[in-house]
Design a protein around this nucleic acid. Sequence first.
DNA 1: GCTGCTGTTGGCGG
DNA 2: CCCGCCAACAGCAG
Length: 303
Amino acid sequence: MPELPEVQTTVIGLQKHVVGLTITDIWSDLPKKTVTRPDFKETIKYSPYFLKFKRNVIGQKITGVYRRAKNILIDLSNGETILIHMKMTGHLLYGNYVQEKKEWVPSEKEKNDALRDPFNKWIHLVFTLSNKKQLVLSDLRKFATVTLLTEKHLKDLGPEPLEDSFDYKTFKAVLLRRPNGKIKQVLMDPKVIAGIGNIYSDEALWLANIHPLSRVGAVPEKQLKKLFTEVQNILKKGIDFGGDSTSDYRQLDGTPGSFHHRHNAYRKTKESCAKRGCSGTIVRIALANRGAHFCNKHQELYI
DNA sequence: GCTGCTGTTGGCGG
DNA sequence: CCCGCCAACAGCAG
């Protein structure tokens, strides 16, 4: 599940490998679904757009790659920017590929066997680059979207939690816009803070000793300060470990990250709490159509 | 072979 | 303001 650390891990790989290369061709087996119009929030999102996208992208040099929230942004020499959102099971891979029959597979000269991992075989979009290698999108559940960036895409996003300007004052102010909201839901809302999803919200709340159903406005200052610190710590740790590969996520070279070996809460249901001196158990509840995992002892509920 | 679960985001309705 | 529910999809456990 790509959240901020997974997207950042991929962006770091792209900055190292594809900046300076020119896009020479684009292929997709699901052009209408994967490459959406920039106004994809509207009803006509599946109308033909792929040809226009190709005209704007083929022949352009990649001048820079960066991240905003969970979006990968690829700057082109003509001033356009490609936006890629990996949603739940999408991830980008880079290597030597060939098309056999309809499917794209790593070529014989590709020595990196990680690209042959079954999680990496759901290829629905291929950028061929000027060095004859490919940048491909593998996406088992076909939810990822690619388009050209417009102003509308990023305007409602909350602040970036790892930027220097993101201090405790900002954190408190954005959270308190939803004082009666459940703290886990508010943390995951991209309009409040960018980039935090289910995994990292579970882990940050475990570290900060706060129950996920706590009301934002009822959490004492001291605990809120700790949460601010732990949110930043856990996101940085996710990046340091190359992201989380509990599920489909893989780094640009096809290898799994290793943050999922460091979980204390996410998907630890029924296990003993790992906090020192805590005799609690990790439990799972449904919250906002997904799972919330937390320790039934040391995470305090503030209502 | 069925059901439910996995999770991102925007949209809709109460 | 806050909540629940829904859609897109495919694999997997039971």
